[in-house]
Design a protein around this nucleic acid. Structure first.
Length: 298
DNA sequence: CGCATTTCCTGGTAGC
DNA sequence: TGCTACCAGGAAATGC
């Protein structure tokens, strides 16, 4: 599982199943983990009518607003866009949820840190609880599909697993940019859904130093990067699926099965490819691990 | 507009 | 045991 890096403690607990959570990924939710949650959620809520959606143990404010809009509405679907969960309602309005680091959904009422409850009009489960101990998450209902209050969602780049995500598309957003490649990928506008872990993995696979100015990355490397992103996320979603099956069988098993991390959390140990020790440093305000030999600056 | 920096928030851990 | 210090993370806000 996750190698524990020297500094800091365990990874965030998002998705770790307190009793009854729908997904027990032991990872901070990035695209594959959110996809797993969406797949678990859909059969439970699609087509059902909400009696109400209410804030529980959470302050009023922009992180939990518009919930009254969902009253009496049918949930048409559960979708994912980047790391956002979208639930279009019969009225045309949209529930938008971001898990942050520690957001989870569950049908069983947790003891604490419940931020929002979804109450259904008949059927089972009767309620779903959104739990988020660290309150990095967000749960709002917006009018129609007006995402202007969620600028990252409004300006989100292409879905990495869509055909539209090509090396050419990636290249187009890199042209003339001085921002480091890691910062660019974390920014969600070049491509949607990557977080700290998968950015490090993809840059390693493509042999790109995380601080390389985006505009200076050669086309050849951008093609490698695009392919690495697609492959790594695809594999991780498979692993999420495994986690989901595990949950159905027996809960308590940690997620990330089958995800083979090649760099993240391996600082100070030898590179799996060349044997040089991985370097750890802060890049783009994130703990970053890379191989100084396989990933050279420009 | 681009880009860098700061803030939000709490649980877990290290060290005393 | 109890205390302090600090770190993890994504998005939004702020500053230049």
């Amino acid at each position: 599982m996750f190698a524990r890096s020297g500094a800091g403690g365990k990874r965030g607990e998002a998705g770790i199943a307190p009793t009854g959570a729908l997904c027990d990924n032991a990872e901070v939710p990035e695209l594959p983990e959110v996809e797993t949650v969406v797949r678990a959620l859909r059969p439970l809520v699609q087509g059902r009518t909400l009696r109400r959606v209410a804030r529980v143990d959470a302050p009023a404010g922009p992180k939990y607003e518009g919930l009254e809009r969902a009253k009496g509405q049918r949930v048409e679907d559960v979708r994912r866009r980047g790391k956002f969960i979208l639930m279009p309602l019969g009225s045309g309005d949209t529930i938008v949820v971001h898990l942050g680091m520690t957001g989870t959904f569950g049908a069983e009422r947790p003891r604490d840190h419940v931020r929002v409850e979804m109450v259904f009009a008949g059927g089972s489960p009767a309620r779903l609880y959104f739990r988020d101990p660290r309150r990095f998450g967000r749960f709002v209902v917006v009018e129609g599909e007006d995402f202007s209050r969620l600028p990252t969602l409004a300006a989100l780049g292409p879905e990495p697993l869509d055909p539209a995500f090509t090396a050419a598309a990636l290249g187009a957003v890199c042209v003339g940019r001085t921002t480091g490649m890691k910062a660019l990928l974390l920014g969600q506008r070049a491509v949607a859904g990557l977080g700290n872990i998968y950015v490090d993995e993809a840059l390693f696979a493509a042999g790109i130093h995380p601080e390389t100015p985006a505009g200076a990355v050669p086309g050849r490397r951008l093609r490698l990067l695009r392919d690495a992103i697609v492959e790594i996320l695809g594999r991780a979603i498979e692993a999420g699926g495994t986690t989901l099956r595990d949950y159905r069988q027996v809960s308590g098993e940690s997620g990330g099965n089958g995800v083979n991390l090649q760099v993240y959390g391996r600082g100070g140990t030898p590179c799996v490819r060349c044997g040089a020790d991985y370097v750890v440093a802060e890049v783009a305000q994130r703990t970053t691990t890379w191989c100084p030999r396989c990933q050279r600056r420009r």
